[in-house]
Design a protein around this nucleic acid. Structure first.
Lengths: 140, 140
DNA sequence: ACCATGTCATTGCGGATGCAACGATCATAA
DNA sequence: TTATGATCGTTGCATCCGCAATGACATGGT
């Protein structure tokens, strides 16, 4: 009846997550050397259009400071553009430049391909994993 | 056909993992303020008996340096004892003290309870999640 | 015995990360 | 209007983490 870390869900989840992140990072490293926060910001902006730091912070599970720093790096690299909000001057409005959308188009390909690969490895358990992740993520 | 981060497995896995880690950390914070590496070392030592840093490093998905530092903190806190190996003096043999086993007994309760809670939340998808995590973790 | 190579634990270091200020700006109510 | 409190993005800081280098020790071949 002794406790086994190998069978402990939080541990296994954490190991699997970092494993998969590594695999994916190896793929997109060939397209662009982005960090994970940069990748998330890029991906979110691509389909959200022009939004604020706070928006991304709330939807992408990144601290405000992470979003801010990642955005600054992406700006310096020419992938995104910041501008002020028309009526609320506290807000920063960010959107991708053409170069940013271009990069995301290529990374989206890589990501979609990788996802397909994972799903085929998972086989018939994929649907259950989907439900399980949704359930686990729902409890704040 | 635009890419959606919300449906991307590596992202969702990462979010779920940190979510669950937070929930669990909140539980065991009441028993002892351990970091995750410390918790992993403690848990592993509890059922492995006396082993070396390298042993833990290999089995618990922690960098050697992490294991080393976590072990030092646990030693200072009185939960583990280091000693030299009889014949190979490069090796450090680590094992829990009675206080360490005592702490682990309590934390094991917490962990087991938390695991049961998670499994009941997952319902019938638990078995598939188990297989999926095993599959995802297997590809180095 | 001697040397080259390999393994072990620790330590330094750079970068990443989360949290808590901070200054600037807005919203609300008296 | 003014004052109070909330919200926004940025920055400082302390910590955490991974990688590489280090020094101590062991092993195998000659």
């Amino acid at each position: 009846m002794t406790f086994h870390l190998d069978e402990f869900l939080p541990y296994r989840l954490s190991v699997a997550a970092s494993q998969i992140s590594r695999r994916f990072a190896a793929r997109y490293a060939k397209e662009a050397g982005l960090t994970i926060p940069e990748w998330r910001v890029l991906a979110h902006l691509d389909h959200s259009g022009a939004v604020s730091v706070r928006d991304i912070h709330a939807r992408v599970n990144l601290d405000k400071s992470m979003v801010s720093r990642a955005a600054s790096r992406l700006e310096k690299a020419g992938f995104l553009r910041k501008s002020g909000h028309d009526t609320d001057r506290r807000l920063i409005v960010m959107e991708l430049t053409p170069a940013g959308r271009d990069l995301m188009a290529r990374l989206g390909q890589v990501a979609t391909g990788f996802q397909a690969e994972l799903l085929s490895e998972l086989g018939e358990d994929a649907a259950a994993l989907d439900r399980a992740l949704r359930q686990l993520a729902s409890r704040g």
